[in-house]
Simulated assay, not measured.
Amino acid sequence: MSIKTHTLHTARLKNNCPTCFGTDGLEFTFTQAEKETPFFKKPATEIENKLYCQTCKNNIYPVNWTEDIERVFDYNKKIAETYKQYLKVKPLFYILVVVALLLVAAVVYILIPI
Score class of each variant (00 low, 15 high):
12 R>P: 00
12 R>L: 11
13 L>A: 09
15 N>A: 15
16 N>R: 13
16 N>E: 04
16 N>V: 12
17 C>G: 07
17 C>M: 10
17 C>Y: 06
18 P>S: 13
19 T>Y: 06
19 T>P: 14
21 F>S: 15
21 F>T: 14
22 G>D: 07
23 T>E: 13
23 T>C: 13
24 D>A: 09
24 D>M: 14
24 D>T: 14
25 G>D: 07
25 G>I: 02
26 L>Y: 00
26 L>P: 00
27 E>P: 05
27 E>R: 15
27 E>N: 04
28 F>R: 01
28 F>E: 05
28 F>I: 04
28 F>M: 02
29 T>I: 14
30 F>C: 14
30 F>V: 00
30 F>Q: 05
31 T>A: 04
31 T>W: 03
32 Q>P: 05
33 A>M: 08
34 E>T: 15
34 E>D: 04
36 E>N: 02
36 E>W: 07
37 T>K: 04
37 T>Q: 03
37 T>H: 08
38 P>K: 14
38 P>Q: 14
40 F>S: 08
40 F>N: 09
41 K>L: 00
44 A>F: 08
45 T>M: 13
45 T>V: 09
47 I>E: 06
48 E>R: 11
48 E>W: 05
49 N>F: 09
50 K>S: 12
50 K>F: 14
50 K>L: 12
51 L>M: 12
52 Y>C: 01
53 C>V: 08
54 Q>A: 12
56 C>E: 02
56 C>W: 00
56 C>H: 07
57 K>N: 05
58 N>Q: 10
58 N>D: 09
59 N>K: 14
59 N>A: 15
60 I>C: 08
62 P>W: 05
62 P>G: 04
64 N>H: 12
64 N>A: 10
65 W>H: 02
66 T>E: 03
67 E>T: 07
67 E>P: 10
67 E>D: 10
68 D>N: 15
68 D>F: 02
69 I>S: 00
69 I>F: 01
70 E>T: 13
71 R>W: 15
71 R>I: 13
72 V>R: 00
72 V>D: 11
73 F>M: 01
75 Y>P: 11
75 Y>I: 14
75 Y>N: 06
76 N>A: 04
77 K>F: 13
78 K>F: 08
78 K>D: 13
78 K>W: 05
79 I>T: 11
80 A>K: 03
80 A>I: 04
81 E>G: 06
82 T>Y: 12
82 T>P: 01
83 Y>M: 12
83 Y>D: 06
85 Q>C: 09
87 L>T: 05
88 K>E: 05
88 K>V: 00
88 K>Q: 02
89 V>S: 14
89 V>W: 01
89 V>N: 01
90 K>Q: 07
90 K>E: 01
90 K>I: 03
91 P>V: 02
93 F>C: 03
94 Y>S: 08
94 Y>W: 04
95 I>Y: 08
95 I>W: 02
95 I>D: 09
96 L>S: 10
96 L>I: 15
96 L>P: 07
97 V>F: 03
98 V>D: 02
99 V>Y: 03
99 V>I: 09
99 V>R: 01
100 A>N: 00
100 A>G: 01
101 L>I: 03
102 L>I: 07
103 L>V: 13
104 V>I: 08
105 A>F: 13
